[in-house]
Design a protein around this nucleic acid. Sequence first.
DNA 1: AGAACCGCCTGCTTGC
DNA 2: TGCAAGCAGGCGGTTC
Length: 257
Amino acid sequence: MPELPEVETLCRQLQTRIAGKKISSTEVYDVKLNNLKNIQGKRITEVKRKGKTIEINLDDGTSVQIHLRMTGRLLWQSEKERPKHSRWKMNFKDGAIYLIDPRRFATIKIQKWENDKVDNDLLVSFAREDFLAKNGGRKGKIKNLLMDQNTVAGIGNIYACEILYRCGIHPERTAESLNVKDWQLIFKNARAILQKAIENRGTSISDWRDLDGHKGENQHELKAYGREGKQCRKCGGIIKRIKQGGRSTFYCPQCQT
DNA sequence: AGAACCGCCTGCTTGC
DNA sequence: TGCAAGCAGGCGGTTC
C-alpha cells in the first residue's frame, strides 16, 4: 500500500526521470480510465507529491494526478513489453511510464493545476497550532485521526501503527485524552518514521516497488504492523491485532497505554 | 461528530 | 488436488 514515503520515493524518481520531457503519446488498457483528456505533445514541468497523490504538472497548466490506492505501481520501462496488469501508459522518446494495478482501484485525473497551500503535511508544512485547535478536543480515536487524509496528509495503516507504537500510545485513545507532550511525541515520531521510510525507499510488504521495479527496505524497520502474536521488541509483550474502522491495527497492549 | 458499513476490485489464503 | 468462500483495504459515499 503506497503511503507518503512510497509516493515520495516515486515522485523523486519521476522528477529525475521525466521532468522536462515531452509526452509522445498515452495508451489506456482499462475502461475505468477512459475519457482522460488528451495530453499528447505536452511537456512535463514538475512532479510533486500532494499527500498520497502524485501530481505530474504539464506545461499547459494542467496536471496528471495519480492516486495508487491499494495495489497501484508506476514502472519505468524502456523495452516494448507490456507488464501484467497494466492499466495506462505514458510514452516518451526513450521509454514509458506504466501504471500497473492488479486490483484496479488506482485513479487518474487530468485537470487544472492548482497551487493550493499545504498545511497538513508533516514533511512539507504543518500548522501545528491550527491542528491542535481543530483536533485536540475530538472524541475520535487517534489511529483514525492519523489516517484521515483531510487532517494529516499521507499516513496510512502501516505508518499509523508504527507511529503509535513508537510513541507508546494506545491506538484506541481519543484525541481529547492526549496532552501536549503526547502530541509533541506524535509529531516528532511521525516525522522520524516517515523520513526513515523515505531513506529506505518505502515498505515492500507485498506489492510496493519503486519506479525501477526495485523493492524498498523499510519492511525491516516495522515493529508493530504485521507482527500479530509476535513478541514486542520493547517489552516482550505479545503484539495484538484489532479492527478499527474495518482496518487492522497492530499494537502492543503492554507498552501502548 | 463519529462510527459503521458498502462498493469498488482481484490475488491470495483457507477450508472442505 | 480443486474449487469456492473469505479476506485484505484506501477512499468516497451513505446511514445511523
